[in-house]
Design a protein around this nucleic acid. Structure first.
Length: 300
RNA sequence: GGCGGGAUAGCUCAGUCGGUAGAGCAGGGGACUGAAAAUCCCUGUGUCGCCAGUUCGAUUCUGGCUCCUGCCA
């Protein structure tokens, strides 16, 4: 794992080639078909050379969430194991990776109820009514989430279904790794990562990202349940609609990407401290050697 | 050249009926268990363009200067 533009894809490809591995993408956006340039997927040749899982699996209008991701990834891991290969998980969606490695608590979900609550939130007084309901029924979660619409709604959803606080239900499982893993976080010096992001953004734009975005927007990506959240496409849409010029578009994408990277860095630092930080850049030979050792220790 | 408008946080700008100033964005920190490349929370001292005058006190009023900018020539 690692922040965006940290070199995960290229490292995963090399390790897979050297250790008979197959790659499972832990990326909430690379799972969608069509967003090839914008999500910096491996090239077609690379995808052909090394088997990949959870890439180009969904159409953009399909809905993805952690729960589904974990199911799909577990299936992929079993599948890879059954063929005697090594599963290599590579991606920047920390939330998904943590959920896969540690498992999710078995919380109920009801998308219908959730969207009802969400709609209620928009009604005049709806927000206050829902907050008041939480304040009375589930004060702990109210305290925790009253500032955060999405979290409040999810807490309310779980409370409605179970009569219990989501926070309470979440602490039932102690975090414990479900697989033996070697987990690395690719770290860069701040300014260096910023530079890499800026450089990669311009390369992606030159490689045809704008055309890709134009067609994705025509296919309605901005109205999809999950894929609309992908970074960059909306900004490119503003450029295509002549609301901003090329340079502004470019800078805004770079800024947004950097903000994403910062959130990822915080996540990996705070939420997955079991992960070993690998200070980049580092020669592949060194990484290969270290991986080999860890692998030996792990299977012993 | 004439008549206006402006000069305040890295950027765009508010504001102070005279008591040394605040928003958005950027930047920094944090959260995160079914939308996560998303969402949310915390975080703002800067010669208030320069020089003088009035005043107990000026970034705020007055005069001059410099630099932008608009209209007319």
């Amino acid at each position: 794992m690692g922040a965006t533009a940290s070199g995960k894809t290229s490292l995963a490809l090399k390790l897979a080639a050297d250790f008979k591995g197959e790659i499972i993408s832990a990326d909430s956006m690379q799972i969608y078909k069509g967003l090839d340039i914008g999500t910096a997927k491996p090239s077609v040749q690379e995808l052909e050379k090394i088997p990949h899982h959870l890439i180009n699996l969904y159409d953009i209008e399909q809905k993805l969430d952690v729960y589904r991701f974990v199911e799909l990834a577990e299936k992929a891991i079993k599948d890879i194991h059954s063929r005697g290969k090594l599963p290599i998980i590579a991606g920047g969606t920390g939330f998904y990776i943590r959920a896969l490695l540690y498992g999710l608590d078995t919380l109920p979900g009801d998308a219908g109820l959730r969207s009802e609550l969400d709609a209620e939130y928009d009604n005049p007084d709806g927000y206050e009514k829902l907050k008041e309901l939480m304040r009375v029924k589930d004060p702990a979660d109210f305290e925790r989430w009253h500032m955060h619409r999405r979290k409040l709604i999810r807490a309310l959803e779980v409370f409605t279904l179970t009569g219990k606080s989501i926070t309470e239900l979440q602490t039932l499982n102690k975090p414990e790794l479900r697989f033996p893993v070697i987990s690395w976080n690719l770290c860069w010096e701040r300014e260096e990562l910023k530079r890499r992001i800026a450089e990669r953004t311009r390369i992606m734009l030159d490689a045809g990202w704008i055309e890709e975005a134009e067609s994705a927007i025509k296919s309605g990506i901005l109205k999809t349940p999950t894929a609309h959240q992908v970074l960059g496409y909306k900004i490119i849409g503003e450029f295509l609609g002549k609301k901003i010029d090329y340079e502004t578009m470019c800078e805004r994408i770079i800024t947004n990407t950097w903000q994403l990277a910062r959130r990822q860095i915080t996540w990996f630092k705070k939420q997955q401290p079991e992960t070993e930080n690998i200070q980049m850049p580092k020669d592949y030979a060194v990484l290969k050697e270290r991986f080999s050792c860890s692998l030996g220790a792990n299977t012993a």
